[in-house]
Simulated scan of single mutants.
Amino acid sequence: MGDKDENKIYSGILEKYSDVWMEHLKELVIYNFNNSKPSMEFVKFIMYRSPKLKKVLLISSVVDEKDEELEMLKVLLQAPRASPVQIIVK
């Protein structure tokens, strides 16, 4: 399956669950996180739909690429959020 197919599937999932709110989610931890478009959009979706979210910890699968981790953090910090969220990329 190519990137284009994955993006189409992901887009359909977001539309299907656009009315979902994660009102009880306070912390999100994702291991082996990367900066692929579906991964980044998933985290943005969670942050936008979680009014009680306080902390997002992303354990990066990007090895020895501090610049890439910094770029992921910049993108996520600019994303709309339902609450003030502490975002950590390691």
Rank of each mutant, 00 (worst) to 15 (best):
M22E: 03
E27V: 05
I46D: 03
F33A: 01
F45T: 08
V43W: 03
N35E: 13
K44A: 09
I30F: 03
V43D: 03
N35Y: 11
Y31M: 13
W21S: 12
L28H: 04
L28K: 01
E41D: 15
V20S: 10
F33W: 02
F42H: 08
E23D: 09
W21K: 14
S36M: 13
E23R: 07
F33K: 04
M47A: 02
K44I: 07
S36N: 15
Y48Q: 10
M40V: 13
S18P: 00
W21D: 06
R49Q: 05
K26T: 15
K37W: 15
M40T: 10
M22N: 05
L25T: 02
N34I: 08
W21I: 13
V29S: 07
F45Q: 05
R49I: 02
S36Y: 15
D19Q: 11
L25D: 02
V29W: 03
N32I: 05
Y48C: 00
V43A: 06
H24Q: 11
E41G: 00
V20P: 00
S39F: 07
L28Y: 01
N35R: 12
H24S: 13
M40N: 05
M47E: 03
M47N: 02
I46E: 02
S39L: 09
N34V: 10
V20M: 10
I30P: 02
K44D: 08
I30L: 06
N34L: 05
E27A: 11
M40F: 06
K44G: 07
Y31Q: 12
K37I: 14
W21F: 10
V29Q: 05
D19E: 14
M22G: 01
F42M: 14
Y17A: 02
W21E: 13
N34E: 13
H24Y: 11
Y48S: 09
F33R: 04
E27R: 10
M22I: 04
V43K: 04
R49G: 00
V20K: 13
K37Q: 15
I46M: 05
S36Q: 15
S39N: 15
K26N: 12
S39C: 15
